[in-house]
């Protein structure tokens, strides 16, 4: 297992390299630069700035410098917010994004899983219909519609919750963003769980378990649920990576200082280093969570062996 994990880490390096390379050149080829503002900068200042950030060098050389710094864990300074380094920005934003995203995923897995199981057990009953309806709505209505409406109803209308803001992660401030981030995931998990549970309940080994007179709790809990969990486990990996690296919409609507917002602002302002920093973090998270999922998979399913 350890050897497998190590091997996976090693194969992740080329992927990361490709991601970094592609991203680096794509953002550089895009027209415009970080110092193209509405009013033109003084040419001398501009030249100075570009020299400081090595932007005057040929692109390949810049790339070499970036890679070298990256290997030392240095993500560089932010171009548009010179008082911060990229690492500092990430250090400030990432915990916020992880906290909201992690909570949303956890709730989505628990609630969505339970909803899916109930729907599958009472198939075609009212509970099933309700879950399917909810899942359809949840995966159809985009977050950027749900979030403002949520705000409208619960913050502005009923006045139960603050309109937005982080407030050091106070409970009341968390509710809105976590729910809005969770809803589409909840819908996907519930739907996935329902269909895989229905499939699991139709397998031959469930029929065997029933034929052996096992109690319904043992049939469902020990046999069906465990098989049905597998697709949900593989979904959870990429979802975790996506959720914990920040949601632009939720962070914007609820004015939360996560990294999703930094990323979009940086892309709009051509803040190369910040964009690259966000890309690296996202890629690392994706690789990491996929690894965790694969390892979790071996624990649930003995047929999967990595040796």
């Amino acid at each position: 297992m350890l050897r497998y994990a190590f091997w996976r880490m090693m194969t992740a390096v080329p992927t990361l390299f490709v991601v970094v390379t592609l991203s680096f050149f794509m953002i550089r080829i895009a027209p415009g630069g970080p110092f193209d503002q509405e009013r033109a900068l003084d040419p001398v200042i501009r030249a100075n700035l570009e020299r400081t950030y090595h932007l005057d060098l040929p692109l390949v050389q810049q790339y070499g410098i970036y890679l070298k710094n990256l290997l030392h864990g240095d993500l560089g300074p932010s171009f548009t917010m010179p008082e911060f380094s990229v690492a500092e920005l990430l250090h400030a934003g990432l915990p916020v994004s992880i906290r909201i995203g992690g909570l949303a995923l956890l709730l989505a897995l628990i609630l969505g899983g339970a909803m899916g199981v109930i729907a599958a057990l009472y198939r075609d009953g009212w509970a099933d219909r309700a879950v399917v309806g909810f899942a359809t709505a949840g995966s159809t209505i985009p977050t950027f519609v749900v979030a403002p409406l949520f705000q409208l109803v619960f913050a502005l209308g009923l006045n139960w919750l603050p309109v937005g803001g982080w407030n050091d992660g106070a409970f009341h401030n968390l509710i809105g963003p976590v729910i809005c981030l969770m809803l589409p995931q909840l819908a996907v998990v519930a739907r996935l769980m329902r269909s895989s549970m229905i499939e699991a309940l139709h397998t031959h080994h469930i029929r065997t378990a029933r034929a052996m007179g096992l109690s319904e709790a043992a049939v469902v809990g020990r046999h069906a649920l465990r098989s049905a969990l597998l697709p949900v486990v593989s979904y959870a990996g990429p979802a975790a990576a996506a959720l914990m690296t920040g949601s632009v919409v939720v962070e914007t609507v609820f004015s939360i200082p996560g990294i999703g917002r930094y990323f979009v602002d940086a892309a709009l302002n051509r803040d190369y280093t910040v964009v690259m920093g966000a890309v690296v973090v996202l890629a690392v998270f994706t690789i990491l969570f996929n690894l965790i999922v694969d390892i979790a998979y071996t624990l649930v399913d003995p047929r999967v062996r990595y040796d």
Binding site: T15, V19, S23, A278, L282
Partner: peptide
């Protein structure tokens, strides 16, 4: 597979920025 592992939104944003 490699294209999948690219950060998706970033990819689109880059394309849009690039294409104008």
């Amino acid at each position: 597979d490699v294209l999948y592992s690219l950060p998706f939104i970033f990819f689109v944003i880059m394309l849009v920025v690039f294409f104008g």
